[in-house]
């Protein structure tokens, strides 16, 4: 029932909604631009002139694209890891990507790399920090024995905790950089260029293709690893490739925008409610849903308290937290797992 009717229309509907979010995201803000003019400016191409064209093409355009690709990367990463670990609470930050990226970014800002190479060094350090952490967690989980799912989760939690402590220490000694680090940590889409957004998009696309390629394997893994093996799935290979894909996409996103929580956790759950849990539909629908959610949240972040901009991570956490509690409560009543 779930797989039929509503599910079939979800992807086209989300596609249309996303276009709406783009127009809205480029039109709303301290200077309002009507949708018609947004479309006219976009149609005129990047050579368009005038103050509104500057806003659309140089300020809000890259920002909307960044929201789109980061939202898509986080939501598909969340869907993938929830399937891979058979754990509805998994998200793309599970294996320490965000903690590692945060430490990397803080080191770059404090250690002078940012002063020496400009703020462009921050994403590079954050990206490296995120990936190094995932690699370390992966190695740690295998050191004890077979690299089971539980040991991977535990290693992720433990390493994240250590890195959070390290981050607290870095914040303490950061001096005048404190504000910038804190704002980075809260997640922000502003002030990014087209090329930075394109960079995240490239990683997101590669990661997304790998996830899509393994959509059926993810379905099989929902039955458990032994069942997946008996269905012909090379579980260790699939697991490794999916972890790499999800981590790369998440690390690229975190590196550019900071820690934006709850998108990866929330969107896949919402999509499953409408379209069912099959990954062939869940992955693309999550990508579109995550993109819509983040573009909308960012628009809200810009419009709620002018002239201030609220970090978008605060918006997603403020809306996502209560929403997630609602889901939890609903599931507790219905039974978290599908039990008779």
């Amino acid at each position: 029932m779930k797989a039929g009717g509503a599910g079939r229309w979800l992807i086209p509907a989300l596609g249309i909604l996303l276009v709406g979010c783009w127009v809205l995201g480029m039109g709303l803000g301290s200077v309002g631009i009507p949708p018609g003019e947004v479309l006219r400016i976009l149609a005129a191409g990047p050579e368009a002139t005038g103050p509104n064209a500057d806003i659309v093409w140089r300020l809000r355009g890259p920002r909307v694209l960044m929201g789109t690709v980061v939202g898509a990367a986080l939501a598909t990463g969340g869907a993938t890891l929830q399937g891979l670990f058979r754990n509805p609470l998994a998200d793309p930050y599970l294996l320490g990507v965000s903690a590692g990226a945060a430490v990397g970014a803080a080191l770059a800002m404090i250690g002078g790399a940012a002063r020496w190479a400009g703020m462009a060094a921050v994403p590079a350090f954050a990206f490296a920090g995120g990936l190094l952490t995932v690699w370390g967690v992966w190695q740690l989980s295998r050191a004890g024995g077979r690299g089971s799912t539980v040991s991977l989760l535990l290693a992720g939690v433990a390493v994240s905790a250590v890195l959070s402590a390290l981050l607290s220490f870095l914040l303490l000694v950061s001096g005048h950089m404190l504000d910038r680090i804190v704002v980075w940590l809260m997640g922000n889409l502003g002030g990014r260029s087209w090329s930075q957004a394109g960079w995240v998009a490239a990683y997101g696309l590669v990661g997304g293709l790998v996830m899509w390629r393994y959509r059926r394997e993810l379905d099989a893994l929902a039955l458990g690893e032994e069942a997946a093996l008996s269905l012909g799935v090379e579980v260790p290979v699939v697991k490794r490739n999916l972890l790499v894909a999800a981590s790369l996409a998440a690390a690229a996103a975190v590196a550019m925008t900071g820690v934006i929580g709850f998108v990866g956790l929330m969107v896949p759950h919402l999509v499953r409610l409408v379209a069912g849990p099959g990954h062939g539909r869940l992955l693309p629908a999550s990508a579109l849903g995550g993109a819509c959610l983040l573009v909308l949240s960012d628009t809200l972040a810009r419009c709620l308290l002018p002239p201030w901009e609220i970090p978008v991570g605060v918006i997603t956490a403020l809306t996502g937290g209560p929403f997630f509690l609602y889901l939890l409560w609903r599931h507790q009543r219905a039974g978290w797992e599908a039990k008779p």
Binding site: K2, L223, P277, A338
Partner: peptide, 10 residues
Amino acid sequence: RPQFEFTVAE
């Protein structure tokens, strides 16, 4: 048992 709510056909 599948995690998540699959239909019989799925």
